[in-house]
Each structure stands twice: as structure tokens, then as C-alpha cells.
Nucleic acid binder design. Structure first.
Length: 571
RNA sequence: GCGCCCGUAGCUCAGUGGAUAGAGCGUUGGCCUGCGGAGCCAAAGGUCGUGGGUUCAAGUCCCUCCGGGCGCGCCA
């Protein structure tokens, strides 16, 4: 499905090679390394065995007999490589026309047309303040949500918040003992946290408290009105708190459903699993044996005392999503420590017959503190709210320094965009698989490879655009605007955006887009530094360069938008 | 003990099996009479954890070992 210039150029290279060699060979198109003056390369080593000829000779033969290719120059043989350069006139023209025609849709595709993906994103714990630990799922999930929508899918972002489970027993009991009404009225979730921590301390001195907590958990489970009322209140307060955070982050969901929404359905799922022979009784519990799927530990559907578990409700939720949305794929953006859980979940779903859905656990490394793993109970935790505030205030200090004459409202807006952007970018610009040791300065970095560097690119481009309303040049971009290395490199980089977007979605790696944008920023800054736009020699050249600037601003805005990062007009 | 993940420059990280492994930070030294210096240019800095293997070609794939992290039946 080659629609963009990059794709077409690559497929022209492939068919050209096949035509000359006259065989349906597997042709690999790569990008040459830095020192080589070429845009695409085809290594000829793999053909050697089949053609009984040296790679160097094959490359030479190809170079000599290559038919004319619209977007590529006549290739050259260099060693065992066949090197192509883009044809500036045709390739550059096509790129710029695509950009002009598609605008904010440049980079999008129809790949997901008619298909739905459901993404499990964020899923915080009710009754706890969100910590930086929830950042990754929220931010990575949001970026994937946007990327999939951009790729043409119907993307459903689901917040599956944890509002059920044994921890509510301790909380309800704790509330009956130590609740400070006034503190609860002012900052309910913080007060609940205090109680949660206090229970842990007290229970260490007096283990009988744990029985009390179990008692309350049971009351809640059985629908006791008082327990139920307290629980509902906790959930309400928590969701209100989450809302505030998501609002600052600019993250939205298509569906909010807590685990408790699946209590009834869990019973049906248990029945179904039993009926299909997927689940069996074992030591008083109901389990799904998974040895045949390569797992020693089974998925547990019902505990020996008859309660549903996290895994039961997750299974019910998955089935609910499949029946409600008819998705092609279920995606879970959840930490790597739950790998086993998702292997079990997916295997169970397949056993139950849900085989026409693909499942993906998009995992990511843990965020830890320098002193070790975060622990809410021990108060060893960094709250997301504090991180956001700190980021915004650091950005604000910088705005005051760099752009003192900006109006107050704009300063606030810029500080928010830059501060929040910095946090998101810090996470989205590196591969998600590695663990991260939390570090204020690193997470809130505002220089180098950081959000403001990219946002500043946009600001600079917009600065030029504000000063001139030159329209897209009649008759297309002027060849003279593609002559210098700065111009040509920028155009070539713009052309690669669709590829970055596609790869990021395909591999669930938003950092591919982030890295791409960083490269774009670098190339643009060099262009900006060396190529006069407003002062171009004549009107047509100026309009042509303006269209390049326009394209750069557009791609930066679209790309950052896919990462959930906004751009200011000034900063 | 078993399973999974990670190990690339002083630090933090990129690197679809292809050519001479790249950035940012930090260090040193340059560039504001051009469209905003939150910028640009340059230098120094590497046995890609270790040892084998597969391949025409390995930072990338497979195995050993070392170091770190996570997980392993009724928590979420």
C-alpha cells in the first residue's frame, strides 16, 4: 500500500532490481550509513549464491541496466551495494505536494479502516493518589491511542480503574477508627492514604486488626449497605481526583469502567469456563490449568473462599470488550511485572474460543526511586500531582527568564505546555522496556533532547509564518528551494514522518516518533540558521521555502500531538 | 531453584541482520547588524558486560557465564 513518497521510492527500487535480475528475489532496501552519499541502498550480497556471481558484479550489472525510476536517480554500484539517490525534482515535489494536500493528515493512513482496537490505559488504584508509577501506562497508552486512531483504526481507550479487592476491607475498617472528618472533607484521597498507612502500622502491633479488615471486606462483598455507601463515596472522591490529573495531562478515555463493573459478569464467566471444561476445581479453588500453554501456574478464577479475583474480573472485562466492540485487537498498556498475568489471561481467552482477536501486552519497565521500589504503604512514593506542579513551575521560571514581556495568560499556558510536555517527552523519548530510576532533573529536563527543544522548533517556524502570508507556490515548489543541503535534508526528513508513525504503531513504540521529531528539530534548526526565508532572492523562491517551513511546523505539531504534547505559538 | 527483561561514550539513551556504532547531558573551544541564542558550529570521549556459535555480513539472531531488575496458586 505505497501511498507516500518514501514508500513509493522504496518499492520502485525493489521492482527495478527485480526487473534487471529477472527473478522474484527478496530485495532488502536499507538506508545507507552517514558517510555514504545515498538515500537508499540495496545490499547485493544475498543474491550472490543464487545468481552465482559476486555481489560487486551484481551491483554493477544493476547499476548499468536499471530502467528509469521516477523518484530515484540512476543508481551507483559501491562495493556490494547498489546505492540510490532520490530525484530532487520528482521526489521533493511529491513530498511537498503530499504535505500541502494532506496538512494535519500527513502521515496518517487507512491501514486500520473498519478495524477496532481496544486499549487498556492508565488503570489507577482507587483510594490512592496517583504516583509517578502510573505515568507510564497513562502517557504511553495515550500516545498509542492517538497513533492507532491516526492509522485509521477505531481506537477505544479504556480506563479500567482498580476499585475492588481486599484492600478496601482495610480502608473501610480504618475509616471507622481513625477518620479525620475535616481532613477528609478537604483532601479525601490524602486522608485515605493516611489511614491506609496507619492501618499498616497498627496491624503490625495488633494482628487482630487484619481480621477486622477481612470482616469489612466480606461485608462489602456481600453488599452490606453501610460498607457499600462508604465504598461508593471513596470511589467518587478518587475519580474526581483522577479527573484533575488527566485534565492537566490532557489525557482522555472513551470508557471508564472499574473492576467492580464486572462482578456479576464474573459469575457468568466462571460458569462458562466451567461448562466449556476450561476451568476445574483444585484445592477448593477454581483454576484454569495452563501447562499445555507452557505455564506452570494456573489462572485462578475463584478463591477457595468463593471470591472473585483480579484475574477473574480481568477475564470478564476482556470478554466484555470483545462482545461490545468486536475488536481486531486488545491492547494492554501495563507494567512488565504483570507479564505472567497477561500470558495467562490471553491463553485462557483462547481456550474459551476467543481466537479471532489478537492480544498484546504492551509492557514497560518499572519506575523506581534511588532507594528502591516505591511503596505507598511506607510513604516511599512520589505523587504525580507534585511532579506536574514542579514541572510547570520550573517551566514558568524559564518563561519569565526567556520571554518576560509575554502576557500573563500566555506565560501560564506556555508553562503548562512546556512543563507537562517535558514530563511526557522524558518518558516517550526512550524505549519503554527499561526500568527507570526516578530523577527530578531528568524527568523535568528542559534542555537538550527535550520537549521544549521540539516546541521551540515549532515556535521558530511559526515566527516566520506570522511575518509572511506567502501561499503555496503556484506550479509547485521551486527547484531552487531544494538545492542547499539544509533545504534538501529538511525535505527528506519530512518525507520520513509517515514511516516513523507506522513503525511506532506497529511495534507499540511511541519513542520512534519522539526520536524522529528530535531529528526533525535538529535538521530544522540548521535550516533556520543557514537559509534565509523572508529574505529569499525573489517571490517564488520565498514562497517555496515558506512551504518547507510550513511543512516542518505542521509535522512537528502533528507529531507532538500524537505524543499528547501541545505546541505554543510563542515561548 | 525455574521463567522473563535489561547491560552500547563519564552520565542518560538511540541504533528495520548490512558499509566508518550515533545523539543529549557534562567537559573544552568558537558563533548574536539575518527569521527569537530555549539556537548553531567544532573537539575530546567506545574491547557495544563475557566467551562461544549461526551467517557472505552480528551491537542486533542462538547458547554459556557475569551483573542488575521483575515474576513464579488463591494481592492488584
Amino acid at each position: 500500500m505505497p501511498t507516500y513518497a518514501v514508500d513509493q521510492a522504496a518499492s520502485q527500487a525493489v521492482s527495478g532490481v527485480r526487473e534487471v535480475l529477472g527473478e522474484p528475489l527478496d530485495v532488502n532496501v536499507t538506508t545507507p550509513p552517514h558517510g555514504v552519499d545515498a538515500d537508499l541502498a540495496v545490499p547485493c550480497f544475498p543474491f550472490a549464491a543464487k545468481l552465482r556471481q559476486k555481489p560487486e558484479e551484481i551491483a554493477r550489472r544493476l547499476a548499468d541496466h536499471m530502467p528509469p525510476l521516477g523518484l530515484l536517480e540512476q543508481p551507483r554500484a559501491e562495493g556490494g551495494y547498489l546505492n540510490f539517490r532520490f530525484n530532487r525534482a520528482s521526489y521533493g515535489k511529491m513530498v511537498m505536494e503530499d504535505l500541502d494536500r494532506l496538512g494535519a493528515r500527513f502521515g496518517s493512513s487507512e491501514e486500520g479502516e473498519g478495524k477496532t482496537v481496544v486499549l487498556d490505559i492508565s488503570s489507577p488504584n482507587v483510594a490512592r493518589p496517583m504516583s509517578v508509577g502510573h505515568l507510564r501506562s497513562t502517557i504511553i497508552g495515550d500516545a498509542l491511542h492517538r497513533l492507532y486512531a491516526f492509522a485509521g483504526y477505531t481506537a477505544v481507550g479504556v480506563n479500567h480503574y482498580a476499585d475492588w479487592g481486599t484492600q478496601f476491607g482495610t480502608l473501610l475498617y480504618g475509616m471507622t477508627q481513625w477518620l479525620d472528618r475535616e481532613a477528609y472533607g478537604k483532601a479525601p484521597v490524602r486522608e485515605l492514604l493516611r489511614i491506609y498507612v496507619k492501618f499498616d502500622e497498627e496491624a503490625r502491633a495488633d494482628p487482630s486488626l487484619r481480621d477486622q479488615a477481612r470482616e469489612w471486606a466480606l461485608r462489602l462483598e456481600q453488599g452490606d449497605p453501610e460498607a457499600r455507601r462508604m465504598w461508593e463515596e471513596i470511589v467518587r472522591h478518587s475519580l474526581a481526583e483522577f479527573d484533575k490529573i488527566y485534565d492537566v495531562l490532557g489525557v482522555t478515555f472513551d470508557s471508564w469502567r472499574g473492576e467492580s463493573a464486572y462482578l456479576e459478569m464474573s459469575q457468568e464467566v466462571i460458569e462458562e469456563a466451567r461448562r466449556k471444561g476450561v476451568a476445574v476445581e483444585d484445592q477448593g479453588a477454581l483454576i484454569v490449568p495452563l501447562k499445555d500453554a507452557g505455564m506452570e501456574t494456573p489462572l485462578i478464577l475463584r478463591s477457595s473462599d468463593g471470591r472473585t479475583l483480579y484475574s477473574t474480573r480481568d477475564l470478564a472485562a476482556a470478554i466484555y470488550r470483545i462482545r461490545t466492540y468486536r475488536p481486531a485487537q486488545l491492547i494492554y498498556v501495563v507494567g512488565a511485572e504483570q507479564r505472567l498475568h497477561f500470558r495467562q489471561l490471553f491463553a485462557t481467552l483462547r481456550k474459551l474460543g476467543f481466537t479471532d482477536v489478537t492480544y498484546a501486552h504492551v509492557d514497560f519497565g518499572l519506575i523506581t526511586l534511588p532507594e528502591g521500589r516505591m511503596s505507598t504503604r511506607r510513604g516511599r512514593v512520589v505523587f504525580l500531582e507534585d511532579v506536574l506542579q514542579e514541572a510547570i513551575s520550573r517551566a514558568r521560571a524559564l518563561v519569565d527568564e526567556k520571554n518576560a514581556e509575554l502576557p500573563e495568560v500566555d506565560k501560564e499556558e506556555v508553562a503548562r505546555l512546556v512543563g507537562v510536555g517535558a514530563i511526557k517527552y522524558a518518558d516517550l523519548s526512550q524505549s519503554r522496556v527499561k526500568n527507570v530510576v526516578f530523577d527530578w532533573d531528568r524527568m523535568l529536563s528542559l534542555d537538550g533532547d527535550s520537549a521544549p527543544y521540539l516546541q521551540y522548533t515549532y515556535v521558530r517556524a511559526r515566527g516566520i509564518m506570522r511575518k509572511s502570508a506567502a501561499p503555496y507556490p503556484a506550479g509547485g515548489i521551486d527547484r531552487r528551494a531544494m538545492e542547499t543541503a539544509e533545504e534538501w535534508n529538511l525535505i527528506k526528513h519530512l518525507a520520513r514522518f509517515p514511516e516513523a508513525v507506522r513503525e511506532a504503531a506497529r511495534t507499540y513504540h511511541p519513542h520512534i516518533v519522539a526520536n524522529y521529531l528530535f531529528g526533525l528539530a535538529q535538521v530544522f534548526h540548521v535550516f533556520y540558521h543557514n537559509v534565509p526565508v523572508l529574505q529569499a532572492e525573489d517571490e517564488h523562491l520565498r514562497a517555496s521555502r515558506m512551504s518547507i517551513v510550513h511543512g516542518a511546523a505542521q509535522v512537528m505539531q502533528t507529531g507532538l500531538g500524537l505524543l499528547g504534547i501541545g505546541v505554543p505559538e510563542r515561548m
